[in-house]
């Protein structure tokens, strides 16, 4: 059974329908990408899972329907959502950001700080720095590190490449696949940059105006010329 399954999920912002019956599944230990143009509903798909937008349809995580759960409650089930714009606490220190990441956990967090610092070595030396003064790439890494602090069962990653230099984007995706290999972390990543997302993900869904237009294993989508031309734009 899939770790996460969406069946006919709909969501709207006021009168605007953003999701029009999206169905997708993410298996345990898999990296799955959600691709598509601006406004296709990629971000809303993640938001419907974490409960930051009103949604209908069926969303089942680990056998539990997410139905009416709000974001606090979804987070407590082990779903870590790194939102668009990263959602770091700019006015707080790096360390406080990490502590907040471990908010739903009990007990000491030193081990976890060491654990995530293994992936982002600069973090250990800059725990006192204000998150707001980090570079864009560092903020994205901090957002990832913070999500990891809670030992999530699933990571929802929204457009990690946004506003970052290609080399930084590459580094971030490298770390994501390393996390997937080493810790078996399940990832659902939304990305505008289809090429890099397809390299890392094993399966992908392409959204078009709130619906799944195409889906399939990443290599197949990447090889399929017509899919590439009409949906992925490269």
């Amino acid at each position: 059974m899939a770790l996460l399954e969406l069946r006919g999920v709909e969501a709207r912002y006021g009168p605007v329908r953003a999701l029009d019956g999206v169905s997708l599944a993410v298996e345990q230990g898999q990296i799955v990408a959600v691709l598509g143009a601006n406004g296709a509903g990629k971000t809303t798909t993640l938001r419907s899972i974490s409960g930051t937008v009103k949604r209908s349809g069926q969303i089942v995580f680990d056998g539990k329907p997410l139905g009416r759960r709000g974001p606090e409650s979804v987070a407590r089930l082990g779903v870590a959502h790194v939102p668009e714009g990263r959602g770091t606490f700019a006015e707080m220190s790096v360390e406080e950001n990490l502590k907040l990441g471990a908010y739903v956990k009990r007990g000491a967090i030193d081990d976890d700080v060491a654990r995530v610092s293994a992936y982002f070595p600069w973090i250990a030396t800059r725990l006192d720095q204000h998150a707001g003064t980090l570079s864009g790439g560092e903020q994205q890494m901090l957002a990832l590190a913070r999500a990891l602090m809670s030992h999530p069962r699933m990571l929802l990653l929204d457009e990690p490449s946004l506003g970052l230099a290609p080399i930084v984007t590459r580094e971030i995706f490298r770390i994501v696949s390393e996390l997937n290999e080493k810790e078996g972390l399940t990832v659902l990543v939304v990305e505008q940059n289809a090429a890099i997302a397809l390299e890392v993900a094993s399966y992908a869904y392409v959204l078009e105006v709130g619906k799944v237009a195409v889906s399939g294993p990443s290599e197949e989508l990447a090889r399929n010329e017509s899919v590439r031309k009409s949906y992925l734009g490269y």
Binding site: P71, A90, M92, K99, L100, Y103, V104
Partner: peptide
């Protein structure tokens, strides 16, 4: 304290606080 941290976080950024499981 942990609650103190969550209180500050809720004031600064309620949306991000909810995403880490804080009952804002």
């Amino acid at each position: 304290t942990k609650i103190g941290l969550a209180l500050r976080a809720s004031a600064l950024n309620p949306d991000a606080s909810r995403l880490v499981g804080v009952r804002v």
